[in-house]
Design a binder for these strands. Structure first.
Lengths: 212, 212
DNA sequence: CGAGATCTTGATCTGACTCAAGAGTCGTGG
DNA sequence: CCACGACTCTTGAGTCAGATCAAGATCTCG
């Protein structure tokens, strides 16, 4: 999608999962190209971001460049809330992405709205700990495919907006291992790739069996 | 500590980090022996728990028994808040533990008090994702030792209330690997074990170098 | 002091990583 | 519309960190 197409789309975009933020200033949609930074670790926090279209990765880096993506966020989801007043992570658009920026009015109390989001994120992160700590490469990729399918409406065909490198950095695997496992799932007739980034689930239950 | 000693201590225990929960019923301290369940996955949630003394593990299980401890909680900390109305994890006392149970009054809104705790937990969990996804066994154990030391006041000597098995299930390692790494840190003069569960940091900066 | 649990150490194995080519895909410009 | 070039993805061969299997050693507590 070109920047021009993005701008045209943004004009007509509707708020997918409307959030009621009283006494907060909801700005028009900001556009981000692929691989562009939304905020960086250490930056001043404060705004919230709701994804209108596109996808976002949140990640941390080690000094030597090792990267762990802690979460992907898709259309409709909200991110950007922090503990303390600075960001603990990097946020980047994965592909062409439109964000609705919400800047709470000074002194406004959004805890009622944010608590459910924070708790949801906490459960998600803790479940991901189980994947990274205790599951095999095959189990990780299977669980990832199911998660992406469910978050895109549960259809049998869905997109992977992110690269194999991103998937590896999310699952704690190398790009080669991710690729090998995808090939294996393909060879076993469990998934089919319509394109490199479009997956068709042929046997979703086989994936469920694998990921336990 | 026997149950009698626990009871005697509980009578005089003070609330370490008092939380103000208006319109919530704060009950007397409940006592738990080592390895006793506080709540289970799927149980009705609702109460909050503040640790007066002792330590707690939160964990999830896979069908075949693999376990991932998502967090340890020490004296003064609060746990038990959930997304939705059922628990997503198991909570167990690690050793003799006293808990102050807080049951919010029906309809009470604690989001203002809980949001900072949930956000803190979220950052903690996401940082732990980096450890599990991208760090070596040596880096994991080093980071764990530093974390435990800091959370017990930053002294050079601190306790490990949990077993090697617990540490392994928290760090995504086997008990043998944890033991080997501890032996290696000992051989390098970085730590000393006063007892099996009491660690003395001889070179905390060496640990910091290892864990980056 | 003794028995069971917990922890340590050794030997071997293996799943995932690393290094190294190739193949495929996609956007660009002629 | 096609051809080029760069990037992403796949596949193969060899290696290694951590798992597994198997004893021992040490600790704890009755």
């Amino acid at each position: 999608m070109s920047i021009h197409q993005m701008a045209a789309f943004a004009d007509t975009a509707t708020q997918l999962h409307p959030l009621v933020f009283p006494s907060a200033q909801v700005q028009p949609i900001s556009l981000y190209g692929g691989d562009s930074e939304i905020y960086g670790q250490g930056e001043q926090a404060g705004a919230l971001y709701q994804i209108e279209f596109g996808a976002v990765r949140l990640y941390r880096l080690l000094a030597d460049g090792r990267r762990q993506i802690s979460a992907f966020h898709l259309a409709g989801e909200v991110f950007g809330f922090e503990s303390g007043d600075t960001h603990h992570f990097f946020a980047e658009a994965i592909c062409a992405t439109g964000l609705r920026v919400i800047r709470p009015a000074h002194g406004a109390d959004l805890s009622r709205q944010l608590l459910p989001l924070a708790l949801k994120g906490l459960v998600r992160a803790q479940e991901h700990l189980l994947v990274l700590g205790r599951q095999s490469a095959l189990e990780r990729v299977a669980a990832f495919m199911l998660d992406m399918a469910e978050r895109q409406g549960g259809l049998e065909t869905f997109d992977l907006p992110m690269s194999r490198t991103d998937i590896g950095d999310y699952l704690g695997l190398t790009i080669e291992t991710v690729s090998r496992i995808i090939s294996q799932l393909r060879a076993r007739g469990i998934i089919r790739l319509k394109t490199l980034r479009t997956v068709e689930l042929l046997k979703p239950n086989a994936l469920r069996d694998i990921s336990e």
